[in-house]
Nucleic acid binder design. Structure first.
Lengths: 114, 114
DNA sequence: TCAATAGTTCCGAATTTCTGAACTATGGAA
DNA sequence: TTCCATAGTTCAGAAATTCGGAACTATTGA
């Protein structure tokens, strides 16, 4: 398995962030991750309620989120811990992530409006 | 030619906005439009400096921007006037467009950082 | 060493994007 | 009215991307 790639903060591109978050499934995953305290595993986030995302699609979603710079993944034993890079990101693109999650009505603790 | 479709404000979806603005060419077009006073025509926005966008691609870019709710297009004689819907949009998704343009370093009047 | 679990990679099918060529709509000139 | 020029749209095939099942890899525990 090739090592996971994470872009350096200064290499993160707005187009990659927007592309990654232009898919509601990825937004749902990211929002859960932003809410979760422990660092979510892939399989813990596969269930969207109305549909269960296939493993390979899920793996790809995480790859897109990771390579865009939105999350950091690291292996912990048999599973993968994923966490958002939102503090860093807010430094590079102030207000961006919050505005996006607000638009989706997915800010942690916020009632869904869509 | 079929009539141009514009979504009602309440039908505008964040995923469509993010998708439309995940393409740097479309961002460049949108940013020019946000800066232009008159309402830009397609051909006036085709020249990106490093490349001239083909007519059909340009037409498609405008379609994506229009159907996502970012711009409004209306025929004025032989040409098309395009204008942003940013005031409306800011009402629906507060701060979103500004945060995105800031991330791209493309806010009107702002020096490019990327 | 073997089995179980978590996730990645591969690869073919389906979908989407891109763009040259043909077409449509409008306005002005003859 | 007819013809031409201009601005943009639509069509269609090629290229690129996405999706997801099946096979594979890595790690842990028995």
């Amino acid at each position: 398995m090739r090592p996971l790639f994470h872009p350096a903060l200064e290499d993160i591109k707005p187009e990659a962030i927007l592309y990654a978050l232009s898919d509601p499934e990825r937004v749902a995953i990211y929002a859960k991750l932003a809410g979760a305290s422990g660092g979510g595993t892939c399989s813990a986030l596969a269930d969207l309620g109305d549909r269960v995302i296939p493993k390979s699609s899920l793996s790809n979603h995480f790859k897109v989120l990771r390579e865009s710079g939105l999350i950091r993944s690291e292996r912990q034993g048999v599973e993968m811990r994923n966490q958002t890079r939102c503090t860093e990101l807010d430094e590079r693109f102030p207000g961006l992530i919050r505005a996006i999650l607000t638009a989706y009505g997915q800010l942690p603790g916020q009632p869904k409006t869509d």
